[in-house]
Simulated scan of single mutants.
Amino acid sequence: MADKARLEAQLSELQARLERIDIDLAEPLNADSSEQAVEMEDDASLEAQAALIRNQIASVRRALARIADGTYGECARCGARIAPGRLEARPEASLCIDCARKVA
Rank of each mutant, 00 (worst) to 15 (best):
M1V: 10
M1F: 10
M1H: 14
A2S: 11
A2M: 13
K4E: 05
R6K: 14
R6M: 08
R6H: 04
L7F: 09
E8A: 15
E8W: 14
Q10E: 15
L11E: 10
S12A: 07
S12T: 11
L14W: 03
L14S: 10
R17G: 01
R20D: 14
R20T: 12
D22G: 00
D22C: 00
D24S: 14
L25R: 10
L25T: 10
L25P: 03
L25V: 08
A26T: 01
A26C: 02
A26P: 00
E27L: 14
P28S: 01
P28I: 04
P28K: 00
N30V: 13
A31S: 14
S33R: 15
S33Y: 13
E35W: 00
A37D: 06
A37I: 15
V38G: 01
E39H: 02
M40S: 12
E41D: 13
E41P: 00
D43G: 04
D43V: 00
A44R: 03
L46T: 01
L46R: 14
A48G: 12
A48E: 15
Q49W: 10
Q49Y: 04
L52G: 15
L52Y: 13
I53K: 06
R54I: 09
N55W: 06
N55Q: 13
Q56P: 00
Q56C: 01
I57T: 12
I57D: 15
A58S: 15
A58Y: 07
V60H: 09
V60E: 15
R61C: 09
R61W: 02
R62C: 06
L64A: 12
L64I: 03
A65W: 05
I67G: 10
I67Q: 12
A68D: 12
A68V: 01
D69A: 10
Y72P: 04
Y72C: 11
G73A: 10
G73K: 01
E74I: 02
E74M: 06
C75G: 03
C75S: 05
C75I: 11
A76V: 14
R77H: 09
C78T: 08
A80D: 15
A80N: 14
R81C: 08
P84F: 05
P84Y: 07
G85V: 11
G85W: 00
E88Q: 09
R90E: 12
R90H: 13
P91A: 03
E92R: 00
A93H: 05
S94R: 09
S94M: 09
L95Q: 05
C96I: 14
C96F: 04
C96K: 02
D98Y: 04
D98M: 02
C99K: 11
A100H: 10
R101F: 07
R101W: 11
R101T: 05
K102I: 15
K102C: 12
A104R: 09
